[in-house]
């Protein structure tokens, strides 16, 4: 009689339940109408089942986004757990859509679901990938732009994890600044 070890049939629980959202740029509809919840998951196996099932970012149309956020946090500045926060923002050039976009996004998801930022992981709200003609963007959103230590930990570990060259600078912007920016660029509160 063969008894399977629990490791073979028990799913591996994640620290958090996560929700994956998809934003499709349909100008005829309002912004929030274009934001769709795809699915939620709280195990490693269910994460992969979802990830393997959906399109890679590089295959999405311009103006589309994926957002992965902790369950209960909406992927928008206005959410109570986002409004005091900000984001580490990585802007990619056009060539990087082919070479880096998809693998950077997967690595970002692995950092989130795997809680790769030690205690600072508690400050993470979610991550967003924006597919845009002028250059795609990947960002990690945190809950409080004043938590400098946690934010710097996240930025440094994330940069190391993606193997981004030292000279390539990653900037952190508060949502407040981003939402009220006058010029085209938003000032960075922190950088790594």
């Amino acid at each position: 009689q063969v008894v399977a070890s629990p490791d073979q049939y028990v799913k591996h629980p994640l620290q958090n339940r996560w929700a994956l959202w998809y934003f499709k740029n349909d100008k005829s509809k309002g912004w929030t109408e274009n934001l769709r919840l795809i699915s939620k998951f709280d195990t490693v196996e269910d994460f992969w089942a979802l990830y393997n099932h959906i399109q890679q970012p590089s295959k999405l149309g311009f103006g589309c986004d994926y957002c992965l956020f902790k369950d209960g946090i909406k992927p928008m500045w206005e959410d109570d757990r986002n409004k005091l926060g900000g984001r580490w923002l990585m802007t990619l050039n056009k060539q990087q859509r082919h070479n880096d976009l998809d693998r950077f996004w997967m690595e970002t998801l692995l950092c989130l679901v795997g809680e790769s930022f030690d205690e600072a992981s508690d400050d993470v709200c979610g991550a967003v990938v924006n597919v845009r003609p002028k250059g795609d963007k990947i960002s990690i959103w945190t809950s409080n732009c004043q938590n400098r230590d946690a934010i710097m930990t996240i930025g440094q570990l994330y940069k190391d994890r993606l193997n981004i060259p030292i000279k390539a600078m990653l900037g952190y912007q508060s949502h407040d600044d981003t939402s009220s920016k006058s010029g085209s660029t938003t000032k960075n509160m922190y950088s790594v």
Partner: peptide, 18 residues
């Protein structure tokens, strides 16, 4: 409290296991 952490190697192994 405790934190459930998975490193990238483990996560990638889970992806490929049946």
């Amino acid at each position: 409290g405790t934190r459930i952490i998975y490193d990238r190697k483990f996560l990638l192994e889970c992806r490929s296991s049946p």
